[in-house]
Amino acid sequence: MDIVLEISKGILEQGLIYGIMALGVYISYQVLDFPDLSVDGTFPLGAAITAILTLRQVNPWLASLLSFFAGGLAGLVTGLLHVKLKIKDLLSGILTMTALWSVNLAIAKTSLLSTYGARTIFNSGPILLLPAGLTPWRTLILAFHLALFMKYVLDWYLTTRSGLLLRAVGDNPQLVISLAQNPGYIKILGLIISNGFAALSGSILCQQQRFFDVNMGAGIIVIGLASVIIGMTVFKNLPLGKYTSMVLLGSILYKAALAIALNLGFDPNYLKLIMAILFTVALVSNRVLEKKEGGPKGRESIAINKY
């Protein structure tokens, strides 16, 4: 029983931490309609910055915040490559992702950096106010609140004028032009936010697992996309409110599926293969479900504003 509890706790922790990255992918993939591979670089970017800063005694909350901004900066680069230099969306992300590999190594100065002993958001600051009995649950409690906080910030943002415009640009760029706004700038803004989320997620993961690994970004986009698609497919008919909630749940479900596969005895070397298979299953079932219901459009959906 203890093992099951322990595994479940791990799944929830990981699902929520990666969920913040998935919220970022939700913005680029779902809202902006921009398949952005930069996250494979911005996720470890957040981790690299956090590892270096926390090792130098910088406040871990500040390190998390700086990671968010660094991710945003990388998103800006992807956006500029696409909008100003007219490079295809997919390729712009690949360029940033590739460049960030070197940047991340330059920041961390090594491919594997342990932050053991450094202060993190999980072992210092406000979390210490929790009663001693809850110590084993610290990570989960904090991850839960962080993920929820980011979700609510995103929900709020998407109801602001700027947020409405962001949703419009993915939907119909011509409308944005008609509103006398430059759709290119709006896309860039979305990529900044999206990669900020990814880098923050990497920063938090680095603090939770206490190391930075230059390879930790490989396949992040698959985890993000799978979380978004699984979440929006599996939970779309449940009264869960916003898509952002479904994305977080999707992230947890995806981590759970992976954990189950590994615990069934699959060799961890096959992790990426299992990830890809799970993602394929999610994609196909998504399409099958959509077909069954006669496509996403067609029926009058009243008052469900999920974004």
Binding site: Y157, T159, T160, R161, S162, G163, L164, L165, S178, L179, A180, Q181
Partner: peptide, 10 residues
């Protein structure tokens, strides 16, 4: 349209 698209309520 014609106003700023900032963080005010949409």
């Amino acid at each position: 349209k014609g106003h700023s698209f900032g963080l005010q309520r949409g």
